[in-house]
Simulated assay, not measured.
Amino acid sequence: MMYHLRQALLAMRANLTATFSTLTTMTITLLVLGAVLLLTLNVNRTLQQLEAQVEVAAYLKDDADGAALLTQVRALPMVTQASLISREQVLTEMTRDYPYAREAADLAGNPFPNTLRMRVARVEDSRRLANAVQNLSGVDGVEYGAGYVDPAVRTLTAVRTAGYALVGLLLLGTLFNILNAVRVAMYARRNEIGVMRLLGATPAFIRMPHLIEGVLVGFIAAALAVGLLAVAYLELSQRVAQFVPVFPIITDLNTILPILVGVGLLGIVIGLIGSLFATGRYLRELE
Rank of each mutant, 00 (worst) to 15 (best):
G168K: 11
L272R: 07
M1I: 08
L23G: 12
A278V: 11
Y233I: 05
A221N: 01
V184T: 13
G218Y: 01
R45V: 13
Y98V: 09
P99Y: 00
M118I: 00
E287V: 14
M1R: 08
Q48V: 15
L234P: 01
M78S: 12
P151L: 05
L166C: 11
L5A: 15
L30R: 10
V182H: 09
M12S: 11
G262K: 12
L179I: 15
E51Q: 13
P209I: 07
G218K: 01
G214C: 07
T115H: 05
L253K: 09
V159R: 06
D97E: 14
S237L: 03
D65F: 09
G34Q: 02
T27I: 09
A58D: 03
R160Q: 12
G280A: 05
L129W: 02
L23E: 12
T71F: 04
G141P: 05
L272C: 11
A130L: 09
T279I: 13
L70D: 04
Q49R: 14
S83A: 08
F277Q: 15
L198K: 03
Y233R: 04
T279K: 00
V133R: 06
L283K: 10
A132I: 04
L172I: 15
D65Q: 08
M118H: 00
P248H: 02
L91V: 01
E235D: 10
A152L: 12
P209V: 09
V120K: 01
L47F: 14
I273P: 08
A104L: 15
G280L: 08
G271C: 06
E124C: 03
P111E: 05
G109K: 03
V244T: 05
L286A: 15
D252W: 03
T19L: 08
